[in-house]
Design a protein around this nucleic acid. Structure first.
Lengths: 129, 129
DNA sequence: TTACTACCTGAAGTTAACTCCAGGTCAAGG
DNA sequence: CCTTGACCTGGAGTTAACTTCAGGTAGTAA
């Protein structure tokens, strides 16, 4: 797959794809003889995973680079990699809790707005013009 | 309450508190005769709300400034303000969904790591040293 | 009076994570 | 052969949201 196709497929700009590769956020992508990127299935899986973790979960780039680097070092980094994921999973769960409680707070506030607005309408009706 | 106390209470730096006020993210704080901030109960409520919406929910500063500006314009902006909140509530709910599905994906990946690690250990035992 | 501390302001600096750009290569079509 | 279009690189520029700084004031303690 060309970079244009991958960009289209994952809705990431070509610049972003090259940037991710440059900083090691995805492993080096396969190239053809004239140096042009040709994404394999494997490359695409990395893009998918990284997009999900970055844009979906907002995990920090630094941590993901570390993860990718470890992945490229083979099987004796399995434990470490799992550790990283477990840690981030924890963070994510916390974040979800926080967002959920903020959601409730917003709901509360919206509810109060509704009360206030209703009250105001009633008052207005009692004093037309 | 002095800015130092408010900073302590909400765990926001004094600089951040002044910054929030300067850009209109919270309404102007009450001052004493020599120009020093003295936060009222009301001021603190704003700080609390804004901290929650920014750090807790990550709502954009721009939108919050608009909300605060509207609040200071009185009752005929009630509907508009409610609209803003409802919109952000929607965004937040979406975000939570996204994070939750990413969490599941992470769980899946962690599970697979466990499998792989177990498998590797077994293999090692069969071929000691 | 002098020194100290907390506070003030406007402006410049920082950080993360892209995003854009200038200048260059390469293969294909006319 | 020449042009066109997709792609390449290294490096500079951008954006949001703070954070730091230089230079100044005001109240208080020795």
């Amino acid at each position: 797959m060309s970079i244009a196709e991958v960009s289209e497929k994952f809705n990431l700009s070509q610049d972003t794809l090259r940037y991710y590769e440059r900083i090691g956020l995805i492993p080096p992508v396969h190239r053809n003889k004239s140096g042009i990127r040709s994404y394999t299935e494997e490359d695409c899986k990395w893009v998918d995973f990284i997009k999900c973790m970055r844009q979906g979960a907002g995990l920090p780039v630094e941590m993901l680079i570390e993860y990718v680097t470890l992945s490229r070092q083979g099987d004796n980094t399995l434990e470490t990699r799992k550790g990283l994921l477990v840690e981030q999973r924890g963070r994510l769960a916390e974040k979800i809790e926080e967002l959920t409680s903020t959601l409730l707070r917003l709901d509360d506030k919206i509810e109060r707005y509704e009360q206030t607005i209703l009250l105001k309408e009633k008052t207005l009706k009692q004093q037309p013009e």
